[in-house]
Each structure stands twice: as C-alpha cells, then as structure tokens.
Computed example of a mutant assay.
Amino acid sequence: MADPRATHSTKATTKLPQTGNETTTNVGLLGGLGLFLAGLLGRKKRRDQSDK
C-alpha cells in the first residue's frame, strides 16, 4: 500500500507573498493628470496660433 501521508500536503505549508493583486490607482491618476495637462497645453498652443 502507498503511504497516505505522501499524497496529502501538510497543513503547515508556507504562503507565498501575494504580489500584483492590489489595484494601483496612482498610475491611473498620474496618467489622467498627464493627459489633462497635455490637453491644456494643446489648447493654449492652438489659441496662440489663431491669434496671429
């Protein structure tokens, strides 16, 4: 007969760190801010060209 302990995992297993499961809002906020500032800069540039 096979050893029953060999087929079952032990209860005292070590847990791996859970990385990459959290959503990061900082990256989204920085991206949105960058797009907002680029839009403002583009509008200002267009306004300056139409004033000439």
Rank of each mutant, 00 (worst) to 15 (best):
G42N: 04
P17G: 00
A2R: 07
T14R: 03
N21M: 10
D51G: 02
P17A: 01
T7I: 10
A6S: 01
L29S: 11
E22D: 11
H8A: 13
G31K: 12
E22W: 13
G34S: 14
T23F: 03
N26M: 08
D3Q: 04
R5V: 07
G28H: 09
G20L: 07
T24K: 01
A38W: 01
L30W: 15
L37T: 04
M1S: 13
N21Q: 07
G39L: 02
L37K: 00
D3K: 01
G42D: 11
A2Q: 14
D51C: 08
N21C: 05
G42S: 15
A38G: 14
F36L: 13
T24E: 02
S50G: 09
R5S: 09
F36K: 01
S50I: 09
L16A: 06
M1Y: 08
A2F: 13
R43V: 15
T13M: 05
T19P: 07
L35Y: 12
L41S: 14
N26T: 10
Q49I: 09
S50C: 03
D48K: 03
T19A: 06
R47G: 02
G32E: 04
Q49R: 07
G28N: 12
K11S: 13
L16P: 05
L30E: 09
A6L: 09
R5C: 08
R5F: 14
L16K: 06
K45E: 06
K52M: 03
G28S: 14
L41P: 00
D48G: 06
T7R: 03
K45G: 07
T10P: 01
T25S: 07
T10Q: 05
R47V: 02
N26H: 15
A2N: 12
L40M: 09
P17R: 00
A38R: 07
L35P: 04
K52L: 05
L35H: 01
L41A: 09
L40K: 11
K15D: 06
L30N: 10
D3Y: 08
G32K: 10
N21A: 08
K44E: 01
R47N: 05
S9N: 09
V27L: 11
K45I: 12
L16H: 14
R47K: 03
T24A: 02
G28A: 12
A38I: 15
G34N: 11
G32Y: 05
T23K: 01
L29E: 11
A2E: 12
Q18G: 06
A38M: 14
L40N: 05
A12C: 11
G20S: 13
T19N: 12
G32M: 15
